[in-house]
């Protein structure tokens, strides 16, 4: 189970003149600090898929980055299956698999080497890595291109390798930051199938998205963040009830 309580994060503003008009009018800008995340709380149970919704700049990426330990929150708690993420981030990283839509690969390494590198960083043994890569190559259908240099991969191939890299260490929770943004239909389908397979295995998934059809198809829970505050956190059924079954209207109603 993943539990997030009262997460907050502020960034110092180096040069206030460089802020956009929208950022300047944002109530989260206080003095020399921009309070990107003010108060975000949500929970995700074993085997659940949680969809993180919110307008651009709402604080979704910052929240997920804190969850993945890339950023350190100013306050709040993150708990994954009973262990405190903030107390021991290096340990927590072993439990987390993270993937973002803008992620890349090391172009001069082959697909296999890309996955191997991260598996080694996770402290996995050689034989363990080889079996796991075989397993993932079967699952994601990567055998034809796995040993080629990844700089010439198509978007779909890249995304498959990136997925394999994110879950090579069998994480207890998978976090995806807009995993389908900028992908073509085929690559998107790969990601969605992957989320589905995780769900079947009982691995909790938290992912942010702008595509409401993905939410309808996959999610058990929905969290809506607006201006750094979690405005809604509950099951999908409760979310749809906000506006007569239309997810679009429900989303708008939640951020009013």
């Amino acid at each position: 189970m993943i539990e997030i309580v009262g997460l907050a994060k502020k960034f110092s503003v180096e040069n206030p003149k460089k802020l956009s008009e929208q950022e300047r009018q944002d109530p989260r800008l206080k003095g020399r600090f921009f309070h990107s995340v003010v108060e975000v709380s949500f929970t995700c149970q074993q085997g659940e898929v949680l969809g993180l919704l919110g307008p651009n700049g709402a604080g979704k990426t910052t929240t997920l980055r804190m969850l993945s330990t890339a950023l350190k929150p100013d306050s709040g708690h993150i708990n994954i299956n009973g262990s405190d993420v903030l107390e021991n981030p290096v340990m927590a990283r072993k439990k987390i698999g993270f993937l973002s839509g803008s992620t890349g690969l090391y172009g001069r390494l082959s697909g296999r080497e890309n996955i191997e590198y991260f598996a080694k960083l996770h402290g996995m043994k050689k034989i363990q890595i080889a079996t796991r890569i075989e397993e993932l190559a079967d699952l994601l259908d990567m055998h034809t291109f796995l040993d080629r240099r990844s700089e010439n991969f198509s978007t779909g191939m890249k995304q498959k390798v990136a997925i394999a890299r994110a879950v090579v260490h069998k994480p207890e929770v998978v976090i995806l930051d807009e995993p389908t943004t900028g992908l073509d239909i085929m690559a998107t389908q790969t990601v969605l199938n992957f989320i589905r397979s995780l769900k079947e295995q009982g691995t909790p998934v938290i992912f942010s998205t702008h595509h409401l059809d993905e939410v309808r198809e996959l999610c058990d829970r929905v969290t809506v963040i607006d201006q750094g505050v979690s405005k809604f956190d509950g099951p999908l059924s409760q979310f749809t009830q906000l506006a007569d079954g239309s997810l679009h209207d429900a989303f708008l109603a939640s951020i009013k």
Partner: peptide, 14 residues
């Protein structure tokens, strides 16, 4: 630029 830094930062290595 390639977007691999974030993945590297969240690997369990100091």
């Amino acid at each position: 630029e390639r977007g691999t830094l974030e993945t590297l930062l969240i690997s369990p290595i100091d």
